[in-house]
Design a protein around this nucleic acid. Structure first.
Length: 274
DNA sequence: ACAGGAACCTGATAGC
DNA sequence: TGCTATCAGGTTCCTG
């Protein structure tokens, strides 16, 4: 569910509440969401350690703990991380609960149970394949126009599939891929290497723009997404195409189309996006 | 390299 | 009201 802006918002809302706190208890309610190591070993690795720093890479959250341990969380479609003060009601679909030294809690809840959680020594992050192979992310120094142009020139596959591929660009998902293409005026059906120089530049700027706006608006809440304190994002108000099937394009009034492209539901304006 | 489909899961909603 | 089909902010694995 959450893409880069949502995960970044979760990071920002959680960090001040959990950094510097010790994990005093771990309740694992659904063991299979712990992907590495075993549930028992996971518990031993994180218990009684202090959360030094909460970082993010792409759609992954990295909890840096004392003793060179890193707990890594990927929320997939419906995962949530919630900071709960001692008296607050239990989340529905709680799968994992961390009780902190001040008796507040960090709760992992996940309706569809697709989220994945790991704990590794900091020199064993390579065990998490999707994380170690992550491409440069929008707004970062390594995501240059030169890199992006080279990427598009090298690939003759579908542009939308390329934008969604985390090893090429880290952090874009279905919403922001569709929005980027809409802002750039590029059809999601195009082949990556068919974009000319102007289109490549427009798309590069569009990606950085929609991600920055998404962060500024605290993420996009369609259904499940909430920040680390349970609040909704507001970016859904500003979307051009995603979730707007049959509604008029905000630019030209043409009805937004929806169809499956590159295996994902895709929204676009057939008039503005060529 | 690339495309397409299935798998992993549960729940909301649209349509009949 | 009640069934069925489809869809969902993701990723990985398999086949062709």
């Amino acid at each position: 569910m959450p893409e880069l802006p949502e995960v970044e918002t979760i990071r920002r809302t959680l960090a001040p509440n959990i950094e510097g706190k010790k994990i005093c208890a771990v309740d694992i309610l659904l063991e299979r969401q712990i992907k590495w190591p075993s549930a028992q070993q996971f518990k031993e690795l994180v218990l009684n350690r202090k959360i030094i720093k909460l970082k993010r890479r792409g759609k992954y959250l990295l909890f840096h703990l004392t003793g060179d341990i890193v707990m890594v969380v990927h929320l997939r479609m419906t995962g949530r991380l919630n900071f709960r003060t001692a008296g607050q009601a239990e989340d529905n679909y709680t799968r994992l609960r961390f009780v902190l030294e001040d008796s507040n809690m960090l709760v992992f809840a996940d309706t569809r149970t697709l989220g994945t959680i790991y704990a590794v020594k900091s020199d064993e992050l390579w065990r998490i394949g999707g994380l170690s192979g992550l491409g440069p992310e929008p707004l970062s120094a390594s995501f240059t126009l030169e890199y992006f142009e080279g990427l598009l020139e090298k690939h003759k596959g579908n542009i939308k599939a390329l934008l969604l591929n985390q090893k090429y660009i880290g952090g874009l998902g279905n919403i922001y891929a569709d929005e980027s293409l809409a802002y750039a005026g590029v059809s999601p059906k195009r082949k990556a290497n068919s974009l000319n120089k102007i289109e490549r530049e427009k798309l590069y700027q569009a990606i950085n723009f929609v991600i920055a706006e998404g962060i500024k608006n605290s993420g996009t809440t369609f259904r499940d997404y909430r920040d680390g304190l349970g609040k909704r994002g507001s970016n859904q108000r500003y979307l051009w195409v995603y979730g707007r099937k049959n509604q008029p394009c905000k630019k030209c009034g043409t009805a937004i189309l929806w169809e499956v492209i590159a295996g994902r539901g895709t929204s676009y304006c057939p008039n503005c996006q060529k």
